[in-house]
């Protein structure tokens, strides 16, 4: 892995970012409208936002809700998906329900949940949880369904009790699939986080963003979008590192494939 950093591949993402910024800068100068400030103006806002205590508190509040919603969703969605994958009856019951809820933008449920729980943290955390849950349930379900029956039989022959199989065989076997769901879930968490704060503007990244928009502070709007993007990138990197550590066994064998019978 270390070797890759010094290879040309290591610079490619950096080049892509710089290219995007150049494109943005050029487009802004050619179009010349206030709704599209030059990249430089937006980036100049970044240190101002990041040194402002209130802005940082807002970003922290967003992150806290997002992570809480994310973790709550995983705690519920992974076991739910695994149970569905191992029991045709459970799957038959929940599947239609999921298929209906999956395409609904979870932020659209925000007004209803706000009626019940107010505009505070609880509503937003729940909406984020919902957003994360569905892809995680779906991929855990697919992962559990794909577990080879004979893996479970092998464990059963060793004396493993039925109750332990879900956690000790189905969960690890489905883990590569589950991580696909977790990654999708993370993106949805970020989206739902911002939109929930747009609907219930109290604190958070989304409320800063849309307040700036209302006040026509377009450079700040773009700066906040960049911050959300970077947040997403860093969080995704964390998930990717965790995945690499936990399911390294599932990686293609590549050069390590070994000879003889």
């Amino acid at each position: 892995m270390q070797a890759h950093a010094s290879s040309p591949v290591g610079f490619a993402p950096l080049l892509a970012c710089l290219g995007l910024l150049a494109l943005w800068e050029a487009a802004a100068r050619i179009v010349g409208i206030s709704g599209l400030p030059p990249a430089y103006d937006a980036l100049r806002e970044l240190p101002l936002i990041l040194s402002d205590a209130e802005a940082l508190l807002n970003i922290a509040a967003s992150l806290r809700r997002m992570l809480l919603g994310f973790v709550l969703a995983l705690l519920f969605a992974i076991p739910a998906g695994l149970c569905m994958g191992r029991s045709a009856r459970v799957a038959a019951f929940f599947n239609p329900l999921l298929m209906i809820i999956y395409p609904v933008p979870k932020a659209a449920l925000m007004p209803i949940i706000m009626l019940w729980l107010g505009i505070g943290d609880a509503s937003k955390t729940i909406v984020i949880s919902l957003g994360v849950s569905l892809p995680v349930i779906y991929h855990s379900y697919q992962g559990a369904r794909g577990v080879e029956e004979k893996l479970i039989w092998s464990a059963a022959a060793m004396g493993m009790q039925k109750s332990a199989r879900l956690w000790r065989i189905v969960l690890p076997a489905a883990l590569p699939q589950i991580f696909v769901g977790i990654r999708t879930g993370l993106v949805l968490a970020l989206i739902t986080m911002v939109t929930s704060e747009m609907i219930a503007r109290q604190t958070g990244v989304g409320s800063i963003l849309f307040n700036a928009l209302d006040m026509a502070q377009y450079a700040s709007v773009y700066a906040m979008i960049v911050i959300v993007g970077v947040l997403g990138f860093v969080l995704d990197l964390c998930i990717e590192m965790l995945r690499a550590k936990l399911v390294q066994w599932a990686e293609p064998a590549h050069e390590i494939a070994v000879g003889t019978s």
Partner: peptide, 28 residues
């Protein structure tokens, strides 16, 4: 039901992919 007095060996190997060779052999 299954029990450790009868040990299966399958055509599909059915090894635990998340365990190493040692981990697999130790598992039972």
């Amino acid at each position: 039901g299954p029990g450790p007095d009868r040990g299966p060996v399958f055509q599909e190997f059915a090894l635990f992919p998340w365990k190493t060779v040692l981990g697999n052999v130790m598992y039972g």
